[in-house]
Each structure stands twice: as structure tokens, then as C-alpha cells.
Simulated assay, not measured.
Amino acid sequence: MTLRRWAIEGRVRFRVVGDQQPERRFDERDLDAFAGVLPSERDRVEVAYVQVSGSSGHESSLTARAEELARTSASGIICVYADRAGGLRKSRPGWAKLREDAAAGKFTVVRLTHEDRPARFGVGWLTMPLATCGSAGG
């Protein structure tokens, strides 16, 4: 009841889900922030996804992009998923493995050099399933 009251008063963020019987949903990070609990860097598990267009060459570009992401990582990159494929290509082993590992809960954050690395169009359709696994970009 207290959490419900705080939500109504606007003290705690929430979202409403469901049409027939709407329910409030709270994000664990918002509740932690409200309670003054700082997230532990141990809980942050970062991976990187790097991609270049073309099937040959560009190895140095892939390496440079992975190194750039590692330098700016808050907790260190545990795995780099890489593909040599254009943004419209469907067959991407690196992206497929990333999705598989996201579903298995192996990481919490996906790092990208550019938001459009997974796809040139419809990035939201690709990132939405990762968010439901708890792996948001950063």
C-alpha cells in the first residue's frame, strides 16, 4: 500500500501495463534510487557488439571499435560479439550469439559504437527483445 501511495503521489516512477486490468510496474533501478541504494558495479556485466560492412578486411576497424568500447566501459567488457556484414544482411553469427546469450542472462549491458550497428532500419525492433532480457544498451 505504501508503494502504491508513493506512486500516486509521484514519488516513485512506474509504468502502467494492461488494458482490461491495468497494473503498475516498477523498475528495480528506480526503486533502488528512491531507497538510496547504489547499484553495484559487480551487477553490471558488459558486452560489446561491433560490426563493419563487408566480408573481408576491416579487422583493424573491428579491433579499434572493440578497444574504444572497452576504454569507456564502466566495469569492463567480458565478451565482444563481431560481424562483418552490411546493416541489411540477415545472417549475422555475432548478433545471433549475442541474442542467445542475452536470453540466457549472461550480461546486463550491450555496448555499441553507434546505435545503428545492429541494423540500418528498425533498431527498436532489435533492441526491444534485449531490454526484456534485462540487457539494455549503454
Rank of each mutant, 00 (worst) to 15 (best):
A64L: 04
I8W: 05
Q20F: 11
D27K: 09
R99Y: 09
R5I: 00
L126P: 02
V109H: 15
V123T: 15
L3C: 09
E46S: 04
R65Q: 15
P39Y: 03
D101Q: 03
V110M: 08
T108V: 10
L98T: 00
L62S: 10
G36I: 08
M128S: 10
E67M: 02
S75Q: 01
R29I: 09
R44T: 06
L112Q: 07
E46K: 04
F107R: 04
I8G: 07
A119T: 13
A136W: 09
V109C: 06
R111G: 00
V50K: 06
D30Q: 14
G57I: 07
E23T: 11
F107I: 05
R84P: 01
M128Y: 12
V123F: 04
T2V: 12
E28L: 10
G18M: 13
D101G: 06
S56N: 13
W6K: 09
D116Y: 10
R24Y: 13
E115P: 10
G87H: 02
S55T: 14
K106S: 13
Y49C: 02
T127C: 04
S61Y: 10
V37D: 00
R42T: 13
S60A: 15
V50A: 13
A33Y: 01
A103E: 15
T72R: 01
E115Y: 10
S60V: 11
A33M: 06
A136N: 04
G36M: 07
R4L: 05
G57S: 08
P129L: 03
V110H: 02
G36L: 05
Q21H: 11
R71N: 09
Q20I: 10
R4E: 03
L62R: 06
S53W: 09
G134R: 00
G122A: 13
D116T: 13
L112D: 08
R13N: 08
W6Q: 04
R15Q: 10
W125T: 07
A35M: 15
Q21E: 06
G57E: 13
H58F: 12
P39M: 11
G122C: 07
R25K: 09
R89M: 06
L3S: 11
A96R: 06
S61D: 14
G94W: 01
Q51N: 12
G18C: 11
A102S: 14
T113M: 00
S53I: 07
G18K: 10
Q21R: 12
A96W: 00
V16N: 04
R4P: 02
G76V: 01
F34G: 11
W95P: 02
V110S: 05
A74R: 01
E28W: 01
S75E: 00
A35L: 15
E9W: 11
A66K: 00
C133D: 07
V17I: 15
V45L: 13
K106P: 07
G76A: 02
D19H: 12
G18L: 10
V52D: 06
G124N: 15
G134W: 00
G54L: 12
E59N: 14
F14S: 12
R99C: 15
G137L: 04
C79G: 04
L126Y: 13
